[in-house]
Design a protein around this nucleic acid. Structure first.
Ligand SMILES: [Mn+2]
Ligand SMILES: [Mn+2]
Ligand SMILES: [Zn+2]
Ligand SMILES: [Zn+2]
Lengths: 137, 137
DNA sequence: GTAAATTTGCAACAATGATGCGAAAATTTA
DNA sequence: TAAATTTTCGCATCATTGTTGCAAATTTAC
């Protein structure tokens, strides 16, 4: 069984053309993908709505996670940590290159804890670093 | 001279009704404001476009800064650090309450530095913490 | 292979944000 | 303070992004 098919089945998702193609895109890509990237790379094959729904279901199943960016565009990347449906626990830092604008999961860099003022209880923290990536250096 | 007028003049912005009213909103508010909040609180007085343009010019002048959120909605807050036109340098942590969904600048909590993998050069870092705020606790 | 369940594509809609342009208002000049 | 100049405002219009309902097509289960 192909890797893509395996991933879908393991996550109780029916195996369809769009899901296979989009999942393959993530497996091939070394950075994060935006909705627009996916539409472009699948080349008109699927309806815009299908792409939205596919991404949503991948997020729900814990296959991909979203990355917040400074310009408020959503990017998606594969979860390498062992996330489960409805229970993500990636807590790594994300890097956005100002040169090539690629978004990269720094899987080995954990989001540091910060001491909050009295009364604040943290639940989850995100950290995004901008700069120059190893390739553009 | 009123405080609001003073701020506008200091930043070389002509003093207009919309700018005064929106600036006053920021001065009164203890959390960050979204575009929609501002439209609501000014009560139909100004065109939607005017609000957009006012916020843009405040950002350009270094009077307010944007806060990235996980759900892709833009929030704005007063710069308390000494930002200048075209050169922001707030680097504090932001807190978003999961209960009241207020967004708060933690001006005294500096974004910590992280050690990046070899080849990555950081330029700027953002950190957003979700949880329960002091009021909702 | 057939029936049931799920997914897809289309149409329609809502929200958000940008731009051009003439009218209105604010600032500068005299 | 009045006229001239500069800036801003409001409106119309458009683009992009994302959501929902529903019938047709596809996938899965039997
Ligand atoms: Mn990641
Ligand atoms: Mn802030
Ligand atoms: Zn790069
Ligand atoms: Zn709260």
């Amino acid at each position: 069984m192909k890797q893509v098919e395996e991933i879908l089945k393991k996550n109780h998702l029916s195996v369809t053309g769009s899901r296979q193609k989009i999942m393959q895109l993530f497996l091939n890509s070394n950075g994060a993908l935006a909705h627009a990237d996916i539409e472009k790379k699948t080349g008109e094959s699927f309806d815009r709505v299908t792409v939205y729904r596919t991404l949503q279901s991948f997020v729900e199943k814990g296959i991909i996670h979203l990355i917040p960016t400074r310009d408020n565009s959503i990017k998606y990347a594969l979860c390498k940590d062992d996330c489960e449906a409805g229970h993500h626990h990636d807590n790594h830092v994300h890097f956005i290159c100002d040169e090539c604008s690629k978004t990269i999961c720094l899987d080995d860099v954990t989001v540091p804890q910060v001491k909050l003022p009295k009364g604040f209880t943290p639940q989850h923290a995100e950290m995004v670093v901008n700069g120059i990536c190893e390739e553009c250096k």
